[in-house]
Design a protein around this nucleic acid. Structure first.
Lengths: 347, 347
DNA sequence: GCCTTGTGTGGGATCGATCCCAGACAGAGC
DNA sequence: GCTCTGTCTGGGATCGATCCCACACAAGGC
């Protein structure tokens, strides 16, 4: 009753072909068929060709699930980002996907929406699938330590939570921030606001440090009320920016710590009919496509997300190859895309 | 020699715990442990609790690979898009990811870069992984027929190549295009150009049909030289748009068939110092965030990509549940986000 | 003729979890 | 005391592919 049952849908075989069926059809054993198809071990060339021919004819596709179970190694990696709708994370994923494909790996992708709970849940799913490694833009320290404890190679990208526990690929936030603030100071700005999402993660901390450092280096006193925490949501941030720009003494320049915040500031300035750069200079950390489409273009720190993704995955593969090599943090530098959104402060 | 070996790294166990180890530690058989952990079948409550406790203590995570092999059913779906860097596809993936997570499914994501070969390759990888289903924005008819032949549920999104072979979720391209062209005609435009990527896929074909239909309905003759095929690349399209706008008799309005082409037209108009909407009206199919950031805002057909993704995945799950239900095409309507990029043609 | 080497093939165990089935045991009913 | 039912547990087979090992056979060296 097991074999020989009629296919329920007419022509098509009900089940997918297995290597056993390929072997039987070719008149060889499963072992020989396996060798013929994988190319590992001895097989007489004519036998090899015949087996491959038959496999093709049957539409045989080896079951990666079974193979991975036996080999105790999978050909897929997990990727965990905060928000796919954000072009920065989308670009990151795109870069990783490209490189993964080139190395014959498949990519499991999860979007944690910035929630630490969801992030750990997704990491557990990756462990269950026994992925070869994980790339994560962490929102808590737990993910990486959890994955490391489960012996799964991890690379933190963009932000770094678990220094010393796993590899990381980040951009030189402090340096880039210092450079753009320095430029604004050079233009004559003194009331330069920093609109930021938070200040504890490496991204926020280092961008803030760069901001502070530039003031210190120039010997310019710093007004702490100009550092505004505006959260992650465009609308909430827009309201914060609106308040900031409506102050009695508004800033003459704003440094937005990421593309979402830059969008919020841009919208708030438009609402208040505050011309950029005449009344307000704007610089963004993170260059996304709209910044070169608007007039004036927005000067931005450009951290190529695709390159970041590629660096992360190549670091991940190095880690997979040599699990006991010392932990490493790769620091990428960022460039400044100068556009028209900065000018000397209004007189 | 097999067990009892010292852990190579000191404290940590070298290998991940298996259900066998959990069972041994709890003093029960694997079967009982399995029942305790999955909740299927009889287990005495105290035993169940003890097993679960021990599993937690050992950091046991069941091997999804082994489970799927045994159950012949996986808890992951494959998603295949053309370009993750494009916010439309990114939004689609985001919507799918959200819903997949809610249903405890993991998502395998591949970016085929618009290449049919890569697309089929990726589909094969999905078959190898025995995914429960696939969602694809197809670039050829092969993918869907291949997957259907492999008995894997498929849903085509955005574009439809295999009518009758598999389910699809698409927007009402023709209607939406007709509506916006109708509005341009109403404003008095007669030389309305259509800048499009290609005209054979359902998206291109239907948007073109809507364009033509609006002219026909209004009894306005149509100049075929105003239908411009501009490819997929922003830069190439920008050059085409540049040529189009430099003609002796340039169009007074342009309908860009997607967000990339709209960006190209926008840039070309800026290069030529052609003010929008005074000298040129612009409408885009596909509303992305920059269109509401620029001045004037770009009027666009808004096809919510996240909703599209959600519709696709719910269709996929219906198909997985009832594999023999008749094939279905879900048609979503699109809205028009009216902004400032349209006006009557220059006198 | 015997041993060695190289080439080629097949049997069976294995990966980890699940699931069918047999069977143990307690309590109830007669 | 016996059967019957329901509760609970364990043994072994199973999913599909891989891989170790044994073995068969031919050619070559002594």
């Amino acid at each position: 009753m097991k074999s020989g049952m009629p296919a329920p849908d007419g022509i098509q075989p009900a089940r997918r072909a297995t290597i056993r069926e390929v072997a039987d059809a070719a008149g060889v054993s499963r072992s020989t068929a396996s060798r013929a198809l994988t190319g590992r071990g001895y097989v007489a060339p004519p036998v090899r060709d015949r087996v491959r021919e038959i496999a093709r004819g049957l539409g045989y596709v080896p079951d990666a699930t079974a193979r991975h179970l036996r080999q105790q190694a999978s050909q897929s990696i997990g990727v965990l980002v905060s928000d796919l709708s954000n072009p920065f994370y989308a670009g990151l994923a795109a870069g990783i996907s490209q490189q993964a494909r080139k190395r014959q790996y498949t990519m499991m992708l999860a979007d944690d929406g910035g929630s630490p709970e969801v992030e750990v849940e997704a990491a557990e799913a990756f462990v269950a699938l026994r992925v070869a490694g994980v790339i994560v833009t962490p929102v808590s320290a737990e993910v990486s330590t959890y994955l490391a404890r489960q012996q799964i190679p991890v690379v933190e990208v963009d932000r770094q939570f678990s220094v010393g526990v796993c590899d990381a690929v980040v951009v030189d936030n402090e340096n880039a921030a210092r450079r753009v603030i320095h430029q604004l100071l050079d233009l004559g700005h003194r009331r330069i606001a920093l609109v930021i999402d938070e200040m504890h993660w490496t991204t926020g901390r280092d961008r803030l440090a760069g901001y502070r450092g530039a003031f210190a280096a120039a010997g310019v006193p710093l007004d702490d009320s100009l550092v505004v925490t505006a959260g992650w949501d465009v609308d909430a941030a827009r309201i914060e920016a609106h308040k900031l720009l409506s102050r009695a003494e508004p800033p003459t320049a704003i440094f937005a710590a990421n593309n979402v915040l830059a969008e919020a500031v841009w919208r708030a300035a438009a609402e208040l009919n505050m011309p950029i750069p005449e009344r307000l200079s704007l610089v963004s950390f993170d260059d996304v496509s709209w910044m070169s489409l608007v007039r004036p273009g927005v000067t931005a720190v450009a951290q190529d997300p695709v390159a970041l993704g590629e660096a992360a995955i190549s670091q991940l593969f190095e880690r997979i190859q040599s699990p006991h090599a010392p932990v490493r943090t790769v620091l990428l530098s960022a460039t400044v895309a100068a556009r028209g959104s900065t000018a000397p402060p209004p007189a």
